[in-house]
């Protein structure tokens, strides 16, 4: 049974419904636009993580890169980020990726932006 009160709580807390859990299998990622934000959501070992979808270095969409376990590689100058916390694992990026809270409720994905 879908818990309506929980949905209200999510919405009240700034969460947005962005899609269904089945759309992001383990080890894969997807780019979504929430308001003005481009968000990248990835699933690793069953858990969802959400980071800014645009590389913090120059301009590239990270969904066009590759995800290897928790390492997210940019397709333009190949910076590497930890998708779990946005940290830079390898340059040329120097700034971490902003991270977003993401949660799954009843097979739905909600992101807070």
């Amino acid at each position: 049974m879908i818990d309506k009160t929980n949905y209200t709580e999510l919405t009240n807390n700034g969460y947005h419904f962005v899609g269904y859990s089945t759309s992001i299998p383990d080890g894969e990622m997807q780019e979504l636009t929430v308001g003005k934000e481009v968000v990248l959501i990835a699933r690793i070992d069953g858990n969802l993580y959400a980071v800014d979808g645009i590389c913090s270095h120059a301009y590239a969409e990270l969904v066009d890169g590759e995800l290897d376990e928790h390492c997210l590689y940019c397709p333009l100058h190949f910076a590497c980020f930890d998708v779990r916390n946005g940290e830079v694992l390898e340059g040329p990026a120097t700034e971490p990726l902003p991270v977003f809270d993401v949660t799954e409720e009843n097979g739905e994905i909600w992101v807070k932006v």
């Binding site: 590239a60 969409e61 066009d64 890169g65 590759e66 590689y73 397709p75 333009l76 190949f78």
Partner: peptide, 9 residues
């Protein structure tokens, strides 16, 4: 075709 960059490299 940015998706092809890393595989091609």
């Amino acid at each position: 075709q940015p998706k092809e960059a890393l595989p091609v490299r």
